[in-house]
Design a protein around this nucleic acid. Structure first.
Lengths: 336, 336
DNA sequence: TTGTATGCGTTATCAT
DNA sequence: ATGATAACGCATACAA
């Protein structure tokens, strides 16, 4: 490994001078600096992030937290997209990303301790059980954090616009003539609460009555439960004319059930999903859904976190809401 | 931040003693050690990974490389599963993982330099253009590496058993009575070469003739191209009775085309995918496919990499092949 | 059994 | 404009 010392010897200057030259300090003669840089290049010098971090107290490394227990794992397309964009944006800003977990090897640690242990300059909490004390500890600590889809008091958060998403979906479906709209929703997280509230509010303002038998709890990302809920809805004396699913993937379960019962989409039943994952747009008929702005959310999260890290004094926590986009597919038609 | 020095002061011992006690060195009196550990706990001491790394020359951090350019991004379910299991296994072994990329911020670096810069103890190359000189440089460097689905000479690699997978698929399809089997394959990577060779060899040994018009190149993960290839196959004077797709997701395109032409699966046409992603098993009919052992591949990659890191002297490079599993769905039936 | 001294590679302060 | 020196937090060889 070639260090700053090697360069100093090769150039016949002190280590301090080399360091300054390499970092573009103003008090080094232009030609000296150039000579040193050239020398560094020819020797194949690479800065040592570890040593630098130890010295300056900043690692240029941000942690990312995906706690799988909630089912919000990396293999969910929504989260993998977020991860991808956090990564891309962070790298653009000069930061590496490291996963934060608990219990590294045989050292018992919680998330906060892990982040400290690795000297993370900040962490993006992308998917977690936000009521877990360990998560709360991290998110209310001295470490800069940005949460996704959940807000802690006086903390920065990036939010997918679930209220608007639901509103757009319901409004669209209503505009297509539907009045008997069923909603299969996921586990009662804060995201779900928002979608539920928005569903009800939008229905109310459109003069649609929300029948309790049209509201069924399902499970995110679980086609089976969506299938069962669909079956229940189909067995009602008065069927809905449109079913909203918890998400695009779980819709597959509904799709199967409808097909099985000979109910054609969208002729006999209109449907819509949520998320706007690629799958939804390659299905035929193309699924009507609301695409969450995962890419922008990830990028914003990284951007705001880095800003907070680099300007802690002037930083004001903020909640950024990222709008999605209604994807008008071919699964919602005018009811007879 | 509470350091080893704080503890030494609080306990009235030297820093060396604290360090040893905390690391369980054998030459510290049991009660002294316990007193120190207790003190550390009460002060909320956390080891500083950065300082330790600088001192011992090992970071307990492994890099993971997903180069998106090849389309092998994190949001591909196969790769996200691998990432997930690499992460889980690495953490179990006491290693954090950091993404390796090129061009961090405004510093121009290649992959090797990035890994060095971060002091990675090793790196898992999960998805990359293996002919890229930058990848080659990394994989043939002094840094321990493990590649997935590609072998560099005298290097450790984890391989999905594409030969066997294809063989099982073809054999199964053959056993169901099919003789006119079409194969839509992806871009010509080494993985594809293996699947192609295995397809041909298996066909040959089963006495099936491989018609050139039944072999069509498509694109991985691209339903559109699979749809086009399907259309071409359907327009042949003598249609195949079974179509093998590059992967489960791209099969969707074929599914749509078949549906559009009123060709029923599996009554009029049998089909099979590859990968065994969750989607394939929630479709109806359930897709016949070959599930790659992504979880085991990731875990093995991490395990072997760590072993190589921790026992560099006794290490022998090896290629581990991870078998998958034939998922007999409902999309292959006996032809008339 | 404990402590002293040193250095990992870097940057920052203060002299020169 | 350049250099000597110290310090970041830790682990280890060696001395006591």
């Amino acid at each position: 490994m070639v260090t700053i010392t090697d360069i100093s010897r090769a150039c016949g200057v002190s280590r301090a001078t080399v360091s300054k030259a390499l970092n573009g300090a103003p008090d080094i003669a232009a030609e000296t600096a150039e000579r040193i840089r050239e020398c560094a290049r020819s020797l194949g010098y690479l800065p040592n992030a570890t040593a630098r971090a130890l010295k300056v107290g900043r690692s240029n490394n941000i942690g990312v937290l995906f706690s799988d227990s909630t089912g919000g794992g990396i293999s969910h397309e929504y989260f993998s997209k977020i991860l991808e964009s956090v990564k891309a944006e962070a790298e653009k800003l000069g930061y590496d990303i490291t996963f934060i977990s608990k219990d590294l090897g045989d050292m018992k640690m919680d998330f906060y301790e892990h982040a400290k242990y690795r000297n993370c300059d900040g962490v993006v909490v992308a998917s977690a059980d936000f009521h877990d004390p360990a998560i709360i500890r991290l998110c209310t600590s001295d470490i800069p954090t940005v949460t996704l889809d959940y807000v802690y008091d006086s903390r920065t958060a990036i939010l997918s616009d679930n209220v608007r998403g639901m509103e757009e979906l319901v409004t669209y479906v209503h505009s297509m003539g539907h009045r008997r709209i069923a909603f299969i929703y996921g586990e009662l997280t804060s995201v779900t609460q928002k979608r539920l509230a928005s569903f009800k509010k939008t229905c109310a303002s459109l003069g649609i009555s929300v029948l309790p038998e049209y509201m069924r709890q399902g499970v995110y990302h679980d086609p089976r439960s969506s299938g069962l809920a669909t079956r229940a809805l189909l067995s009602l004396p008065e069927r809905p004319t449109c079913i909203l699913y918890p998400d695009d993937f779980s819709f597959i379960g509904g799709m199967n059930e409808l097909e099985k019962q000979g109910v054609s989409i969208p002729k006999d039943m209109s449907v819509a999903g949520y998320d706007g994952i690629p799958l939804s747009q390659v299905l035929r008929p193309r699924l009507t859904t609301y695409r969450q702005g995962a890419e922008r959310m990830g990028a914003e999260a990284a951007r705001l976190l880095v800003e907070q890290i680099e300007h802690p004094d002037t930083w004001l926590p903020q909640q950024v809401t990222v709008e999605g986009e209604l994807l008008t597919g071919d699964t919602v038609s005018r009811p007879d």
